[in-house]
Every structure is written in C-alpha cells, then in structure tokens.
Write a protein that binds this DNA or RNA. Structure first.
Length: 429
RNA sequence: GUGACUGUAGCUCAGCUGGUAGAGCCCUGGACUGUGACUCCGGUGGUCGCGGGUUCGAACCCCCGUCAGUCACCCCA
C-alpha cells in the first residue's frame, strides 16, 4: 500500500520552521496594532459566486485556479483564493461598513490550483489589511506605509522595492480597454496566442506580458494615463506627495496591472529579486466599487495582502531571522530508576506551578544515566535536574547541573529545589 | 496548464561499460572516561519514487507511463 502524502502544493510546516513563522506573525501583529487595525476572521469556504463577482469572471484565478465543488446541498462553494472578497462579505453582512470607517486585518490560508514552484503553493498563507470608508489618498498612503513599517521591523527595507501605478476608475478603464482592444486587434499578427486571446476578454493583462515580441508590438499602444480622469490623477499625485513626505521610496510602473478586477485608482506592489520568478511579496490598492458590487452600500476601500511563505523564504535566505526565535527548553529532568517516577512527576508539577514561564521536560521512557544526560544536552536546556536513587531510601536530594555555562553541579534537598532554580535562573517571584 | 532538469537508507551522497546495494552523519548496544560531547568495537534501518516494457538478469549509463520536487513560462501573494 502506497504511503499517503500531502496534497501537491500543500506543505507541512515542521517544528524547525514554525518559529520562523511565529516570528513573522508576531512582527505583523505588532505593526497592525501600532496602526490601530483590528483582526477579523472569516471562513475559508464561501459561495463560489462571491469570488466570481469580486475577483472577476475572466480572471485566471476564477477561470482556472479555484478549488470549487458542490457540497451535499448542491451549493457551489470554493476555497477562498484570496482574502478581500470574504472580508468585505463578512464586514458588510454584519453592518461594519455602512457609514463607518473600519481598519481591519486578517491572516490565514488561501487556495489556488497553480503549478507549484518556489514561493508559489496551492495552499499559501496571506496577511492582509483592509481599510473601509476613507476616500482620500491619505489612507492609501497609510496602508503602504504600514507595509513599509513591517519591512523595517523585519530588516527587509533594502531588499524590497515599491512600484505604484494609477489605473483610474472602472469607467476610465472601460473606455481605455475599448481603445486598447482596437489597437490589439489591429496588431493581432504581431501578438502571441495568449495575448491575442486576451485582446477582448482582458486586454490590460496583455500589457505586462514578458514576451519581448509582444512588448515590441505594444509600442505605440494607447496609454492608460491618457484615459484616466482628472479626479484620479489628483488623487494619485497627492498619494505620491504623501509617500515622499513620509520617506517611502517608490517607482512608477505604467505597466503595473493587478490581476483582480476590483482594483481602481492607485495600485501597488512590493517586489524583490531574491525569490526568482515569484518576486511579488505584497500587493494591493484601492477598490472603491467592490462593496457595492457585492450588494452593499457604496463604500470606498483600500488594502493589500502579502504572501507569508515568500516572506519567510526571503528572511531565511537573507539570514534575517533572529536566533532567539527558536523555542528552547530551560530545564531537563533526568530520572534514573523507575521507582523515582512518582517523585519526578510530583517535583515537575510543583516546579511548573511555581514557574509557569519556564519550559521543563521530564525524561520519559527510562534508560541509563548517560543516555538521559545526552538528551538533556541535546535539548538545549540550561539546566538538568538529576533524580537518582542512592539507595532504597526515599529520595532526599537532587542535583542541579549546568549544561551550558559551566557544567558544574550542586546538590540540593528536594524541598529546596525550587528556590535554587529561581536563584540560578534569576527568576524573581 | 506547457517545457527543462531531478527522484538510492531519517539527513547528505557514492554506486565503473546492465548481474539483485555502500559511506558519512543521525539513532542505538557495549568498552573507555569521576556519570553527554573525544576514541574504539558492534547494531537497527533501503523491494534504489511508483507501475509496466526490453533482457537469462536492471538502481543503472534502455524505453513508456505515472507521482513528486526544482527552475522557467504562465499567474500572483
């Protein structure tokens, strides 16, 4: 019988790696707290319709990457491929949006059926923030600044670059898309199949094609800038001014087009060249029309999401994860002789009650002294408490041995073990 | 979804032109050591990703399929 294995593209994160994740999570939570964002949690499963209506019917995500299925009631459900749609649905359903401002954050797994690759998995973890009810460019700037704060805390500020672009309003893009389609149809012979197919369905996606021939053909194509309304232009230039004032560097990328339909006005991406082909670590922008599109009252919004796997990969390869994040044990209790098991569990219980912060492993499974000591050293503990019977008499003393500093050991009466431990570990009660 | 490369013990790898597998580390037993780590001796562990085909016989420098990984395309976080 073949061994069962994890679903392709869905990874187990093992104990050696989890401290790295906890480190990133801790940093992220510290930053969002600093900016006054509150956590929201919403289901991993939603009606497929939610994603079709928000992300867009003709996007790659909806067309070929969603995990969709009929449940036992015959409802068509999908594992969420991103967080914004569910966040909007949840916030609106519970009346958090109408006539209000909200700063929200979330974290959790997303699912897309893509071919796995470094930094791209079928189940992947995202952090995101969404801000509702604020129309000005100041909230756009805040959201971007928040992400920049995180890079600073993680020590990544020199490894990520910010690209921004103004994609105008939905109306602007409708007019632009028409003009672009006309251009692409005229130049159809110079395009590749992929570009040709998109000329009608999603012409703006053709713009960021990596095919040099396509890029060559695009010379002379109508520019989005010329179709963007004055209002958008002003909003965008105010955002740029704010970013400059706050010291967030950026480059403008006229070709930056996000793959989800709900974005409008300013969009942005943080990218790195240290992750190979999956260079985008964080992306977002404004989505003023989405709430209404999903049936809510018109509510402006902006937000972003970042890929945690990519961040962890980056931090790991750059050596930016502090040593101290790994979980360590403080005390390893060595128990030689089966008749001491009762004394051991009792002492351990008392110590754990008295020092709730320390980590204490009691050796289980018996074995001779030398092997237990070996485990004690390998555990990384600072101290070993040694319970060893000298005779048939009840145990009166234990040894406390330094494992890291000196190797010295002291004998203490079992009743005074806690006091001695507090003294050595410098715990004040 | 497309292409290229890769897949041998828990880990890192070796295996000459086809004849049914080895090393180091790890783990473990013992010796030694004033009770772990040095040194010495011994041991566990692999139907060579899986399934077929070619061959008297393939881990193999043969073929096909399949699964998985890596990288690129694509996509996006």
């Amino acid at each position: 019988m073949a061994k069962l294995q994890a679903i392709r593209g869905m990874n187990d994160i093992l104990p050696d790696q989890t401290p790295n994740w906890q480190y990133v999570e801790k940093c992220f939570q510290a930053v969002v707290r600093r900016y006054g964002y509150r956590e929201i949690r919403f289901p991993i499963l939603e009606q497929t319709q939610l994603f079709k209506r928000s992300i867009g019917e003709v996007t790659d995500i909806v067309e070929k990457e969603m995990y969709s299925f009929d449940d036992r009631n015959g409802d068509n459900l999908s594992l969420r491929p991103e967080g914004t749609a569910g966040c909007v649905r949840a916030a609106d359903q519970h009346g958090l949006l109408f006539n209000q401002q909200q700063r929200l954050w979330y974290q959790g797994p997303m699912f897309r059926h893509e071919r796995p690759q470094k930094g791209r998995y079928r189940q992947f973890q995202q952090f995101g923030v969404e801000a509702f009810g604020m129309a000005g460019p100041d909230i756009d700037a805040e959201v971007i600044q928040l992400s920049a704060s995180l890079w600073q805390d993680l020590g990544l500020e020199n490894y990520l670059t910010l690209e921004i672009n103004n994609i105008g309003t939905a109306e602007d893009r409708k007019r632009y898309a028409a003009a672009l389609t006309a251009f692409l149809v005229f130049h159809a012979e110079e395009l590749d199949d992929d570009a040709r197919n998109r000329s009608h369905s999603n012409p703006m996606r053709v713009l960021d094609s990596k095919n040099p021939d396509v890029q060559e053909a695009l010379k002379g194509a109508p520019a989005l800038v010329d179709y963007v309304s004055d209002e958008s232009v002003i909003h965008y230039s105010e955002l740029k001014s704010l970013l400059t004032q706050v010291g967030v560097e950026f480059t403008e990328s006229p070709r930056l087009v996000r793959g989800l339909d709900y974005y409008n006005n300013c969009v942005f991406e943080w990218t790195t060249d240290s992750l190979g082909a999956q260079g985008t670590v964080c992306g977002g922008g404004r989505y003023d029309g989405l709430v209404e599109q999903l049936g809510g009252k018109p509510t402006v919004a902006a937000g972003f999401a970042m890929g945690v796997e990519r961040l962890v990969l980056m931090l790991d390869s750059l050596g930016k994860i502090p040593e101290a994040t790994a979980q360590v044990i403080d005390v390893y209790m060595v128990v030689v002789g089966g008749q001491l098991a009762g004394s051991a569990v009792l002492l351990a219980k008392q110590l754990r009650q008295r020092f709730p912060e320390i980590g204490l492993i009691t050796h289980c499974g018996g074995g001779k002294y030398s092997n237990q000591m070996k485990r004690a050293f390998n555990s990384g503990a600072r101290l070993a408490i040694v319970l060893e019977a000298e005779s048939e008499q009840p145990l009166e003393t234990v040894k406390i041995r330094h494992l890291i500093d000196s190797g010295d050991s002291v004998s203490v009466e079992i009743a005074n073990c806690g006091d001695k431990l507090a003294e050595i570990l410098g715990i004040s009660e």
